[in-house]
Design a protein around this nucleic acid. Sequence first.
DNA 1: AAATGGATTTATACTTATTCTAAAATCAAA
DNA 2: TTTGATTTTAGAATAAGTATAAATCCATTT
Lengths: 131, 131
Amino acid sequence: MKTINLTTQRKAVYDIVYHAEDHPTAADVMNRLVERGHNFAYGTVYNSLRYLTDNGLIRELKLGEAASRYDGKMDDHQHIVCESCGRVDEVMTGAPLQWYADVAEETGYDVHHAHVVFKGVCTECKNKSKK
Amino acid sequence: MKTINLTTQRKAVYDIVYHAEDHPTAADVMNRLVERGHNFAYGTVYNSLRYLTDNGLIRELKLGEAASRYDGKMDDHQHIVCESCGRVDEVMTGAPLQWYADVAEETGYDVHHAHVVFKGVCTECKNKSKK
DNA sequence: AAATGGATTTATACTTATTCTAAAATCAAA
DNA sequence: TTTGATTTTAGAATAAGTATAAATCCATTT
């Protein structure tokens, strides 16, 4: 059976992603590591993020920006991006199962999952623009 | 009123995206231009793709791969990517409106739209693996 | 037709995010 | 405690896309 080898570096990267309030990019993770006195190579941070992703400890988010973000929350959920300030929040309300069935019928695919990114305007930005 | 200025280069790029059977990347578009005897600068192709996107003539797709793809089909639809062979197909079945309402309630956002990428296995690949 | 000015294209340099590579360090087992 | 595998490191390399400045194009005015 395959065991998970959490080296010092991987553990430190995992801690940051797991305890993050936001959804940090690789560069964010790097900065936070430095803040905590670590000084790992860039390659190590990328390797660790991939290792953790491959082993199901964190998730990689591709939200249509240039850089991937990482998420330590592993239960099934989607994300919403504010078009005004860029913040990313979680969406727990799942898509109706019937929709997957409909898509499978339409396309002939075995539909495994849907990666959904909502776009909109967050409460704060709504208030700001209302002035 | 703003008019659309279709130069030779932009027209050639548009023709390729509009008539493509697939969803070409910028590099694909470049190659097809060369095949047709054009020899535009890379920057021009990127500029043209952006110009056409900004003016609502084509759509830019960010499907989680490194490179953006482009789509000349402008009616509202989503995409499904085969995890086995990478082909991209269109999905016309829309997400249920109630879901948007639920997400708006959950997050407090004004939800403008959802960008959905389905992942699954296409008919061909299913048959192949069945042997 | 020549001059003007704005938009566009070109060639090339640069940026950003990420991966690759080869050497060095670390670790685990025999 | 040598061997072998894995991991880390530093830095080079890559891919996709953007920025820049000069050259070109094009429509309009003189």
